[in-house]
């Protein structure tokens, strides 16, 4: 395969090199390198304030890095926009906005519609298809303020689906949703991955990492470990990120790695 010479690390879905991000002079991410191969479902985990959301926002050009560079499939985000889908945190918007679920999903197509063009029948059908994928077809005309948290999250996921991207970024999609929604989301993300897409998820629940994901990035200002989840999801690695909170993780890790000595988790 010939590779255009202006591409940088084109074999990686996401390539982050020497990235530092700071707010008000305080580093939020410090000199990190992240490489994610295409076709994996990756969990980004780490304690509160570890910079998980910041990493995604920086990759998507929403936060300006202090130093470093990022490429997606070999090129910067600004030229790869159409290949990227994004699901922000549900709490980042005011759900009392007067509109329907279908309308929100259609918003995922505004970027490619371009200026002055109104969404028409094709966009509507595309949005209805995406709502069907998240099992919300019957709620297409429901006011978004009347949706449950899980339903709102699925609307956001459908909005990213219509983007037909190659790389999807999801910021805590499983936070505070019901079991039905979590199952729907995970099944859908697996489907995307199996279709060759790359799915990157900020995830808070260490208990489910092993089951849901095949790639893992442990973050706490720095990248503490990254790679296939089977190699990375060890108590030693998690201890580096979570420190004294590790006691809470004992039970989890015993389930995952029964042979790991418990002494490791002593306070």
């Amino acid at each position: 395969m010939t590779v255009p010479e202006n591409l940088h690390e084109p074999s990686l879905a996401v390539h982050v090199e020497d990235l530092t991000v700071s707010y008000h002079g305080k580093p939020v991410l410090w000199d990190i390198d992240v490489d994610i191969p295409p076709g994996v479902m990756a969990a980004v985990v780490g304690p509160n304030g570890a910079g998980k959301s910041t990493l995604i926002k920086t990759i998507l050009g929403l936060v300006k890095p202090t130093a470093g560079h990022i490429t997606l499939h070999g090129a910067p985000y600004s030229s790869q926009r159409k290949r990227v889908g994004y699901v922000p945190q549900r709490s980042s918007v005011d759900w009392d906005f007067p509109t329907t679920a279908l309308d929100i999903v259609t918003m995922g197509l505004y970027g490619r519609l371009g200026w002055f063009r109104r969404p028409g029948r094709a966009e509507r059908e595309r949005a209805l298809w995406a709502l069907g994928e998240v099992r919300m077809a019957d709620l297409a005309d429901r006011q978004i303020s009347q949706l449950s948290g899980g339903q709102q999250q699925r609307v956001f996921l459908a909005r990213a689906l219509v983007q037909e991207a190659d790389v999807y970024f999801l910021d805590e999609p499983m936070a505070g949703v019901d079991a039905t929604t979590e199952r729907t989301i995970v099944a859908l993300l697996h489907k995307l991955r199996d279709a060759g897409k790359t799915v990157i998820v900020v995830h808070h629940d260490l208990q489910t990492v092993q089951d849901y994901f095949d790639w893992m990035i442990i973050l706490n200002i720095r990248v503490l470990a990254q790679g296939p989840v089977g190699e990375i999801n060890t108590i030693g690695n998690l201890h580096k990120a979570y420190g004294s909170q590790i006691a809470l993780l004992d039970r989890v890790q015993q389930a995952a790695e029964p042979r790991e000595p418990v002494a490791e988790s002593a306070q």
Binding site: K57, L60, G61, L62, R81, V84, Y86, P88, S92, V93, D94, F97, T99, I104, M107, Y110, G111, L113, W115, R118, P119, R159
Partner: peptide, 20 residues
């Protein structure tokens, strides 16, 4: 600018990722 104004009003962050 109807649809752009609507998107920026509802979700400015997502609007930015769309290149608006």
């Amino acid at each position: 600018f109807w649809k752009e104004f609507k998107l920026v009003t509802f979700d400015p962050v997502f609007a930015a990722t769309q290149g608006l």
